[in-house]
Design a protein around this nucleic acid. Structure first.
Lengths: 244, 244
DNA sequence: GTACATTCCTGACAATATGTCAAAAAACGA
DNA sequence: TCGTTTTTTGACATATTGTCAGGAATGTAC
């Protein structure tokens, strides 16, 4: 199916190379660093050929975003399947989120660009809906764990608060934290040596605040998260340790 | 001092008009919506004149960012001066943050653009340091309240967690939430009718999680925040109500 | 009021983008 | 091998940022 004809194969391979190179350029030079002129030159094709693969520059960026978003969803799914009480499974999601952002730090660069620019008008409905689907699935996975916790009587949310609202809080905190870490050197100047640990502590505090058992003081979450890494994300874990 | 000569006054006035119009264009069309060509045309001057005011397009954007950041810092300062126990003062900061983002929704648009684009190289050191100073001052104000709470024995942070780390968590959550609200319609689809309320609940939960007294259940924070609005931000409050 | 100095404004110019498309080239199929 | 289809090309149209020499307006001294 992949190698129907040599030509098809060549085109398919080129698309991969376009995205690889585009990600590199975007990472080093931001939106303006991704020049279709240089991209085409570097690839040894004309600019017209690039437009045969993608309708416009923005479509390339969105394709890059979807690529990593998909990877994150896959990691979330694996984490959610971890054996244990719901709160531990929630912590496993945290492990996945942190591993993801540390393994693919350029993902946030791309996300920022997508958020800042009014690129949505130019892109195809198909790709846009892919982004949204991916987002909602991630939220759904986490909300499912919250529901499990409630069903098992481990946590009761305040009046008028839905599981999705709690997930929204978790999502906001991680999203905001990673964005601040990536774009500001404020964290260093605040004397925060390990911002990821800070966020973990904050999230543990928040979950504790809703009385979700077992509470932080009754379980060694730090040790547990190490375990999750080794059990669920062995490959990613070793890759991260190599990089550091 | 302001009206030294008619000419100086004219130039000064024009700078205000440039920023006003630039903000408008940036808000409606993002980074690319701000075209110096149209800007100059609309203002009835040549593009060269714009460059007499600002070194480059990015400087205009940064100037806009600083303008609103300054306004937020001023609001934070007022909130921190509210009479009450530290936790209530912290809630007052929350009121300020929420009022700010609702009164100046375009601020986040500008912030996203600044974060996404590699504009920092092009801008002057002077403006860049203004941004950072403003950030650090906001954090400092909130961290001071946390320190007050600790000094008065209302809260004890976990081993190895600094007041700045807690502020980092609060900052992340609000930053992330406002960014998600502004750029994704996910919140609506999640059935979250009032995302600002959701964030308030999450933050209350988090502060509760650290055992900061008086706890949420012992004080009517909802009523208290209404009071803060009327006491500390009467003008902003009425302006918000008008807009809605 | 006039002449001179200074400041300010202009619009053409260079450089660099993106996106389009007719025509050329290559690949395919019988 | 030859006609058909697909793919690639590069010139073109259009738009944008930033520069700068020269000209216009303004301020100043007498």
């Amino acid at each position: 199916m992949t190698t129907r004809t040599p030509k098809k194969q060549e085109i398919h391979d080129r698309e991969l190379r376009i995205m690889e190179l585009a990600r590199e350029m975007l990472l080093t030079g931001g939106y303006h660093g991704l020049s279709l002129d240089s991209l085409a030159a570097e690839l040894g094709v004309s600019r017209g050929t690039i437009y045969n693969h993608f309708k416009c520059k923005e479509e390339i960026i969105l394709a890059l975003l979807i690529e990593t978003m998909d990877r994150r969803r896959e990691m979330f799914q694996r984490a959610a399947g971890y054996q244990g009480v719901p709160r531990v499974r929630l912590a496993a999601i945290g492990v996945a989120a942190e591993l993801f952002v540390r393994l693919y730090p350029d993902h946030f660069r791309v996300e920022q660009i997508v958020k800042s620019d009014s690129i949505w008008d130019k892109t195809t409905e198909e790709r846009r809906s892919l982004v949204k689907t991916c987002q909602m699935q991630c939220v759904g996975i986490v909300a499912g764990i919250v529901r499990d916790g409630m069903a098992q009587g481990h946590v009761t949310l305040p009046e008028g608060m839905t599981p999705e609202a709690l997930v929204f809080g978790l999502w906001s905190m991680t999203e905001g934290a990673y964005s601040i870490i990536a774009t500001s050197d404020a964290v260093k100047e605040l004397g925060i040596s390990d911002p990821f640990r800070s966020i973990r502590l904050n999230i543990h505090g928040m979950v504790d605040g809703f009385g979700w058992t077992p509470l932080q003081k009754d379980l060694d979450y730090h040790h547990m998260m190490e375990q999750v890494m080794k059990d669920v994300f062995p490959e990613e874990y070793s890759r991260l340790k190599q990089a550091w």
